[in-house]
């Protein structure tokens, strides 16, 4: 079976070919940053984390085996980094809470992933129509695994089998994750789809 073109490039990267690496970074920068942005909410931090993902690819290039599609490998690294960052933030937040408890008006903890609207350029935020704002909000309300599955579906039109590999789930579990995400999006967006 012929290798996919990205795997061919990655084999060159494994031999230290920087031009091949640059091609892969150029091709995948946008899907990776958007996948991370949906978890991190801050565009600047999302870009920093995306840079770390590609640096990690470079550092671990010798471990790449062409049995795995490059995109599957890349998104698995990206997801791993996102999860670590979310854990770091959760811990940091728990420590801050220990020092100065901050609760919402209803006494509940604030959600971990609050969209950082202030981080977006004002006119950029203003330009987003209501529906797109609702899409973003609905995505951020999804459990991490569902959100990641949806981002992978969107950006790469990945086969379910590859999404399953990135998520570390069985194929049937992945289908169920995708379905639950779709049901939630449909319910949350319904009021904005047909006024």
């Amino acid at each position: 079976m012929p290798l996919d073109p990205d795997a061919e490039l990655m084999l060159k990267v494994r031999r230290g070919n920087r031009a091949a690496f640059e091609t892969l970074v150029t091709k995948f920068q946008k899907p990776v940053i958007n996948m991370i942005f949906q978890s991190i909410s801050d565009p600047i931090e999302a870009e920093d984390l995306t840079q770390n993902v590609f640096v990690q690819v470079w550092k671990t290039r010798s471990r790449y085996k062409p049995t795995a599609k490059f995109s599957t490998w890349l998104f698995a690294i990206a997801r791993n980094m996102c999860l670590n960052e979310a854990r770091r933030r959760a811990r940091h937040r728990a420590e801050s809470l220990d020092q100065a408890p901050k609760e919402g008006a209803d006494g509940m903890e604030q959600p971990l992933q609050v969209a950082d609207r202030a981080a977006l350029p004002a006119d950029d935020a203003a330009l987003r129509c209501e529906l797109h704002r609702q899409v973003e909000a609905a995505l951020r309300m999804l459990p991490e695994v569902q959100r990641t599955a949806m981002m992978l579906l969107r950006h790469k039109e990945m086969p379910y089998e590859d999404i399953a590999k990135v998520l570390g789930c069985s194929l049937s579990a992945t289908k169920s994750i995708i379905h639950r995400a779709r049901v939630t999006l449909r319910i949350r967006l319904k009021p904005y789809l047909r006024p």
Binding site: Q29, E47, Y192, L193
Partner: peptide, 28 residues
């Protein structure tokens, strides 16, 4: 389902900075 998916699939995306690739190459 179709309308929700279309809204999701066409929502604006974040664009990486124009010097992003150069930054990565410097980092390596």
């Amino acid at each position: 389902y179709k309308a929700a998916w279309a809204a999701f699939a066409t929502a604006p995306e974040l664009e990486p900075s124009s010097n992003f690739v150069a930054r990565v190459m410097n980092a390596i």
